[in-house]
Nucleic acid binder design. Sequence first.
DNA 1: CCAAAAGTGTTGGCTCTACACCCATGA
DNA 2: TCATGGGTGTAGAGCCAACACTTTTGG
Lengths: 243, 243
Amino acid sequence: MGTPPTSDGPRHLKRPAKDPAGGPAIRLARPNVAVDTVLFAVESGRLRCYLVQLKRGPLEGKWAFPGGLVRFGELLDDAARRELLASTGVNEPYLEQLFSFGDPSRDPRAHVVSVAYMALIDDPRLAATQSSKYGGGGWFEVSSLPGLAYDHELVARYALGRLKAKLEYTNVACRLLPAVFSFTELEELYSLILDRQIDRRNFRRRILGMGLLERTSAQRRGSHRPAALYRFLTRDSQTVEML
Amino acid sequence: MGTPPTSDGPRHLKRPAKDPAGGPAIRLARPNVAVDTVLFAVESGRLRCYLVQLKRGPLEGKWAFPGGLVRFGELLDDAARRELLASTGVNEPYLEQLFSFGDPSRDPRAHVVSVAYMALIDDPRLAATQSSKYGGGGWFEVSSLPGLAYDHELVARYALGRLKAKLEYTNVACRLLPAVFSFTELEELYSLILDRQIDRRNFRRRILGMGLLERTSAQRRGSHRPAALYRFLTRDSQTVEML
DNA sequence: CCAAAAGTGTTGGCTCTACACCCATGA
DNA sequence: TCATGGGTGTAGAGCCAACACTTTTGG
């Protein structure tokens, strides 16, 4: 989580009573639940994720993934969406739960279990932070993140790993691309995220073999041969059988 | 979770105040965190998981995976281990976090976010329930579970899916087998869990090719040709590169 | 006509699958 | 000697990686 102070309440609730012997008060103290979301997008040829700067508390000035406490009666996915919208203005991203991080010392202020999410959008301009909760926000290249609060280094690694893995056997890529794109753009996306070069011919064969794409009649023009544009048959999640 | 009433406190804490307008009281109400663990073992040639029967509350009589609330200051893994030990006597299982289930309606009594775990042991006789918290416990074949409480059907499917997947590219199998075993036993384990027949020769080649096993000098004897016994080089988690 | 990016096939190696017979032991 | 499970090899198909030249357009 990271669970920066939320606008809907203070964060220090439910500390164990200071009674070290553990009277009834200590038994009532329970960890809180938060969500934190790693939002990815491609901007100027780099894979980036969105960070917000903490404004208050012992971690003031550090960067973190947007997140906050889950409300009573709220779905985890909804909490992630709500916090992401509040912190970045991003509205309907692809969203996927990653893992839960529950080390009680991950947040110096309280015991908060964070359910980490990954979110993808196709246009980085959709994100901007005006929330008074944070000192600002912005896109950072995943390979050179600033010092992160909480255990967010760990969360970042986990998210990147998941994204890489899912490129290989699902159609997630479509959530990082516009509806229609050239094969070269798709290839660059893969090359970017997997951080290695890709053979154009083999890539084309393989991807087309998955049967997730269709060619549109549109073309992209430039001072060179025009490129055919493609579209994913569906933007819903699909998994390719690999046997 | 499932989060049956725990021995260390009632479960209805932190309900939102009945004030429907949402005064300060409602803002303090937060979901609780629980862990629930799907414990697997092979018994008499079947893949089984361990269920406990709920004794109190609206779900009385239903079966569920053992679990309970996470304590303040406790690691998630530790909570899973603690609850598993208390409910089944199982001590040092292989343990792996699966997914978090947070639907507020999953538990009729309260909003409880459950972090689901999978645990593996090599001997089903290690598990038994004497906890007064439950009306008993036992091993059930995964393909014919009784009616489960909470969203534990979902948890069960998720756990089985994860187990199947990890058989293919890790050494998890070793956590369901004794330290030393014949190739046939290993093959039967795979066949059992993946629920399909396996070609003995190809299986042998493939598994040996992964380089995770070593042959011991011991043999298993019976009224037939003796079987060579093998051992996993390490029982620590290992992943095989598949390229 | 030049620059820039798009588009396209083939080959060799490797991996995977399918498949059936002999072996070692105990009873 | 028979029953039981243990142990082994090979051939064909499909898959994947490596590799370079031609095409189309705009300037």
